[in-house]
Design a protein around this nucleic acid. Structure first.
Length: 947
RNA sequence: GCCGGAGUGGCGGAACUGGCAGACGCGUUGGUCUCAAAAACCAAUGGUUGAAUAAACCGUGAGAGUUCGAGUCUCUCCUCCGGCACCA
């Protein structure tokens, strides 16, 4: 008896598979294809921990499954090898990024190889190699040619630590995604790509792809579509106007002031004079000093200054003040807003702070009244609370001293009634709704419409309570009471205080107001997106150089775009395609200076203008590099044709393999990579390069593996599990199976050393049964046969839905059955089981497979013999159903018995089952002296007596 | 605040279109083997009452509802995780 020795089995098979190119991916005419792709990794110097391969193992199983099911499968792997960590390491240690990257790549590859992943390594790609980034540069030129990439001076995100600009998507909560340094805003000339022109399609096409909900939601949220109106406000005593964007034109009547972002051009004073220019300038400078983070972190406390200007509310002609405040962002909409404090929380906070007018124009359709009553105003506070409960009041805030509540207006009379009885002398109760209703201690009831001053009410309140005397009026008092919490109503309702639009619902009103604005020629419907253009240039070294040459001599030729660069006029000359790649020079100083290190490379700087042939002074290259997300936005095309020297990939090969059928990777790429890749795909589609416009038909995210201590694996905690060690000690098959068995593929799970031993035990049992042949005879016993067919069915279905954990548990169930006394299996049925096992545990399966066939372990005829390329076994649906049925017998929905019956072709009759059930003592004992009202029967499943 | 996702034994988790809740594995307990231990194997394992492998009741975050029957459907609420967030 030969013990299971993974160290003896696994490396040998891996070598044989690789040598014989078992996992090659020819595309044969007429055969179905599956392109199953992992997000290609950044090869970090740290190497892999066991969490990294989780996704790779899952996709590998799926790839193997489809391969065995007769598909041509493309399952490649490559390296996202450009990027900041290697460069930062170079700065710190002086080792060239190329060197560290190549080393890390080799290590990664070895680690992945050791897990027995079925990649076609002949298609390996590396984004830092010239034969790859040549095409990254080509994509840039394509976008430039189609006016999709452009140079623009704009406020951009700048990371002071990394000394480079960042895309919006790389700023996480105001901080650099790499180093966590707060990001600054700088006005810089940068290369952008016009992804915003694809916003609508990027949004609507989400409907046609099979992606996780949260990922789609993340993209929708990032694109941030909103519909509303652009409204032009004219300024008092001036012919200038201010345009605002709003999603709530129905609240126009409530606009009591305007706010401009501090960066708004009007504030410079160049186009018109600003009365309070001095204060405004001070404020602008102050705002400039703040980082984005500071501006948003201080959001509780709003700030701003009055410009001295007044605008005219077009709906009611009121003169309203114009302010500037940094809660308004220049980058969204028109950079200015109308302040509607009654119906927007932010505007309300601002108005409250600066004492601006609040005019409500939307009421909540008479759905409720809001009231506030303090204990000190009531005779019996407890009784008052009980009365409130009797009218079904909903408590917003309730404690021993006071209560804030709301209730249905139909109870207003009841409220007035019990309030009258419960008011302390010298006090009053009040509620706010359609009206402001006040009930005084003498029983008089006052109703105030629209919160306007009412001398009766105000006078009485003033007389009754000393505290009231501090306030200048009714509104002032409301604003300083607990009502403030409820005065601002941001939902939809019906319009009032809005001239001809009174009585309309918000949704109707929106349309009508927009129509009216259009008639007056002072506004129109508008759609806005949060998505910004993609900033693609970086002032760093380790990336593909941007293939652009600037030439002063070509400025006048009228054929090239002219820009101002470093204070001089230059023509923008794209590097001709035949001159690609623009090689990344190696003789550079990596120190980040805020300029690309390429500036200092002599070999890089010296260039001849491809247009006019000039060189020397006045002709120079763009020294910025492309962001690594440009590398990764197209790499999945390259796998179809990785060695093509004439195109990024041939059209024919793209069409035969793409789009990617199943894409597997981390959820952290919700917006960055996945959005850019979709964008590039749409560009290629639009310009006729490809015939599809979504790159990834289906997307799945793998979960996270935490350390045994439940913390994220990290050197810092000393809880990193290295896959190399697991492979060494327990074997790649055990590692693969355990990672798939740990739990659902997408879950966050802790590594458990006991758990992996359980899987190892399972594998050893398989070895004992199949390799030692303990249970193999020439007959499969019926029970085992049924279990086998069930298992084949379930494993196949589970793989397709990424339910690997349940696939493995059904294989365990099968083994449990087979290992029961007297159960045996035939050789060919054993082979079927080994086939399905092989996608999870390829090495041991191959060993057993060869053993069952009596073949020698050699490369001879391996392609024809290997279990890896065998056919997925079919299952017999009839056998899988089983020979017996179990019918549950319930009395009033409670299980009282089960009937084990032989399966009948057309199922059991209700009457037969019922009479059998009635014979069961555990059922019939419930029938004494009661009448069975109803009997419910679900064929072959359940019988329920209702008594 | 908004948008997603999820709450099931001691733990990871099963449960198809509503139909035996807790599959499978870990852990735990008992046993076999052993001088002993480990490993391996066998058995038990949601909770309460109970001598019980009798029986009953309770059990899928909380509360209501629909239904003969709810982990699954509907409503309200709570908690946790993830993403976005002054986007007008």
């Amino acid at each position: 008896m030969e013990a299971y020795d993974h160290q003896k089995i696994e490396p040998t098979w891996r070598e044989l598979w690789e040598k014989n190119h078992v996992f090659g991916s020819p595309k044969l005419a007429g055969k179905k294809k599956k392109y199953i792709l992992d997000m290609y990794p950044y090869p970090s110097g740290e190497g892999l921990h066991v969490g990294h391969p989780l996704g790779y193992i899952g996709s590998d199983i799926v790839a193997r499954y489809y391969r065995m099911n007769g598909y041509d499968v493309l399952h490649p792997m490559g390296w996202d090898a450009f990027g900041l960590p290697a460069e930062n390491f170079a700065i710190k240690k002086g080792v060239h990024p190329k060197e560290t990257t190549d080393k890390a790549t080799a290590r990664f590859k070895q680690q992945l190889y050791n897990i027995g992943l079925s990649y076609d390594w002949e298609r390996e790609i590396n984004s830092s190699k010239p034969d790859y980034y040549r095409w990254t540069q080509w994509f840039f030129l394509l976008m430039y040619d189609k006016k999709l990439s452009y140079l623009k001076k704009a406020p951009v995100n700048w990371c002071p630590h990394c000394q480079t600009v960042l895309a919006n998507e790389q700023v996480i909560q105001g901080k650099c995604e790499r180093c966590d340094t707060p990001v600054e805003q700088k006005e810089l000339q940068q290369w952008f790509s016009n992804i915003t022109s694809y916003a609508e399609r990027l949004l609507s096409d989400l409907d046609k792809i099979d992606w996780p909900d949260r990922t789609k939601a993340g993209q929708r949220n990032w694109i941030g579509k909103s519909t509303g109106a652009r409204i032009t406000f004219s300024l008092k005593d001036s012919d200038q106007t201010i345009e605002v964007y709003t999603t709530r034109p129905d609240t126009l009547g409530g606009a009591t002031y305007l706010v401009l972002a501090p960066e708004h051009p009007l504030l410079s004073g160049e186009t018109m004079s600003i009365p309070n220019q001095k204060e405004v300038n001070e404020y602008i400078n102050q705002a400039k000093m703040k980082s984005d983070l500071e501006r948003s972190e201080l959001q509780k406390e709003k700030s701003g200054v009055f410009t001295g200007l007044f605008a005219v509310n077009p709906l009611n002609g009121k003169h309203i003040p114009v302010w500037t405040a940094d809660y308004v962002l220049i980058s969204y909409g028109t950079g200015s807003i109308m302040g509607v404090p009654a119906h927007d929380q932010r505007d309300f906070d601002f108005a409250k702070k600066y004492g601006l007018e609040v005019i409500p124009v939307i009421k909540p359709s008479g759905l409720w009244y809001i009231g506030y009553v303090a204990k000190k105003w009531s005779n019996d506070y407890q009784e008052f609370l009980t009365s409130l409960e009797n009218i079904n009041a909903e408590f917003i805030k309730k404690d021993d001293e006071s209560v804030l509540f709301k209730f249905d207006p139909k109870h207003i009379d009841a409220f007035i009634d019990f309030s009258k009885k419960n008011i302390k002398t010298g006090s009053w109760h009040d509620v706010m709704g359609d009206d402001y209703v006040v009930i005084f201690d003498d029983g008089s009831v006052h109703k105030v419409e629209r919160f306007v001053e009412d001398s009766d009410v105000w006078g009485r309140e003033h007389d009754l309570e000393p505290g009231v005397r501090e306030f200048s009026g009714l509104w002032d008092m409301l604003m300083h009471s607990d009502y403030v919490e409820t005065i601002c109503f941001a939902d939809e309702g019906s319009m009032f205080n809005s001239e001809q639009f009174d009585g309309l619902s918000s949704s109707e009103g929106r349309e009508k107001v927009i129509a009216w604005l259009e008639e007056q020629n002072i506004g129109h419907k508008e759609t806005q997106y949060k998505l910004r253009d993609w900033l693609i240039s970086r002032q760093r070294y380790w990336g593909p150089p941007i293939p652009i040459i600037y030439c002063t001599k070509c400025v006048g030729d009228g054929r090239h775009e002219v820009v101002n660069k470093n204070g001089q006029e230059v023509a923008v000359i794209p590097v001709p395609e035949s001159d690609l790649p623009v090689l990344l020079p190696e003789d550079v100083n990596f120190k980040p200076t805020g300029q690309s290190p390429l500036v200092d490379s002599e070999s890089f700087r010296e260039v001849t203008c491809p247009q006019c042939g000039a060189s020397g002074e006045g002709v120079f290259r763009e020294s910025d590099t492309l962001d690594t997300f440009v590398d990764s936005c197209w790499y999945f095309f390259r796998f179809a044709d990785p060695h093509n020297e004439n195109e990024f990939a041939s059209k024919e090969k793209i069409e035969s393999w793409l789009p990617v059928d199943i894409y597997v990777g981390g959820a952290e790429h919700t917006v960055l990579h996945l959005m850019y890749a979709r964008y590039i795909t749409k560009v290629l589609f639009d310009y006729g390069y490809i015939s599809f416009d979504e790159p990834f038909t289906a997307l799945r995210h793998q979960g996270l593996i935490l350390g045994p201590d439940g913390r994220k694996m990290s050197k810092r905690w000393g809880n990193v599990i290295n896959p190399d060690e697991v492979v060494e000690n327990l074997g790649a098959d055990t590692l693969r199976m355990y990672e798939m068995f740990m739990g659902p593929f997408t879950n966050v799970l802790g590594w458990n050393t006991d758990g992996i031993n359980g899987v190892r035990r399972f594998i050893e049992r398989i070895w004992k049964v199949f390799h030692e042949g303990e249970k193999i005879t020439d007959q499969t016993t019926p029970k085992t046969l049924e279990s086998l067919h069930k298992t084949i069915k379930k494993v196949g279905a589970d793989i397709e839905t990424f339910s690997f954990n349940t696939a493995i548990s059904s294989m365990m169930e099968f083994m449990n059955t087979l290992e029961e006394k007297n159960e045996t299996i035939s050789k060919s049925d054993a082979q079927s089981f080994i086939k399905i096992l092989s996608v999870f545990a390829p090495h041991i399966s191959e060993e057993i497979w060869f053993g069952l066939h009596g073949w020698q372990k050699t490369g001879e005829a391996l392609i024809d013999r290997t279990v890896q390329l065998s056919d997925w076994p079919p299952y017999d649906a009839e056998i899988a159903k089983g020979s017996d049925v179990t019918i549950v017998v319930q009395v009033n929905g409670k299980v009282r018995a089960t009937l084990q019956l032989e399966r009948k072709d057309n199922g059991w009759d209700k009457s037969d089952v019922e009479s059998l059930a009635r014979q069961e003592p555990s059922v019939s004992r419930y029938f004494d002296g009661v009448e069975v009202k109803q009997v419910i029967y679900v064929p072959d499943k359940l019988l329920n007596f209702v008594i």
